[in-house]
Amino acid sequence: MKAMLLPETEKQVPFLSVCIVTRGRPALLRECLEIVINGQSLSREHYDVIVSDDDPEHSAKKVVEEFAGVTWVSGPARGVAANRNKVVGQSRGEWIVFVDDDELPEPNWLAEVHKAALSGQWDVIEGVVQPTDYPDSIFWYAPTVESPGLFCTANLAIRRDTFVALGGFDEQFAISHEDMDLGRRIRNAGVPTTFLPKAVVKHPARRQKLKTIFTRTVQQQYQTYRLLHPTSRGAMSGIGAAVRLSQWTMVYLFRCTRINAAVAGWQKWRSFCLESGIRVLCAPIAAMRIWHGERDVPGNETENRGS
Rank of each mutant, 00 (worst) to 15 (best):
V99S: 10
F163Y: 15
S91M: 03
P107V: 05
A81E: 00
E112M: 11
N83I: 04
L118N: 09
W109C: 09
R84Q: 11
A154R: 12
R92K: 05
W140F: 11
N155K: 05
V99L: 13
D123F: 03
T132V: 15
V80T: 13
P131K: 13
I125Y: 02
L110H: 11
A111Q: 15
R84S: 11
V80K: 13
N108H: 14
G89W: 00
L156N: 06
V88T: 06
L156I: 06
D136M: 00
D123G: 07
D136V: 00
L110C: 11
D133H: 13
D100E: 15
D101G: 14
A111E: 14
A117S: 08
Q130I: 15
L156E: 03
V80P: 05
D123I: 00
R159T: 03
N155W: 06
T144I: 12
G79C: 04
W122C: 05
L166E: 02
L118D: 13
A154T: 12
L118W: 06
V99W: 04
V80H: 09
L166D: 01
Q130W: 15
A117V: 01
V113C: 07
E94H: 10
G127Q: 00
W109P: 02
P143L: 08
E146L: 15
S147E: 15
W109K: 07
S147K: 14
I158P: 01
D136F: 00
V87D: 06
L150C: 09
F151D: 02
P135K: 03
D123C: 07
N155A: 10
I125Q: 01
A81S: 08
F139Y: 12
Y134C: 04
V128R: 13
W109Y: 15
G167N: 09
I125M: 01
G93C: 04
S137M: 04
I96T: 01
D123T: 01
E126A: 03
I158V: 10
K86F: 08
V87W: 11
T162S: 12
A165C: 07
V124N: 03
G79V: 02
L110Q: 09
S137I: 04
F163T: 07
W109G: 03
L104S: 09
Q90S: 14
P105C: 02
G79S: 05
Y141R: 09
D101M: 14
G167H: 06
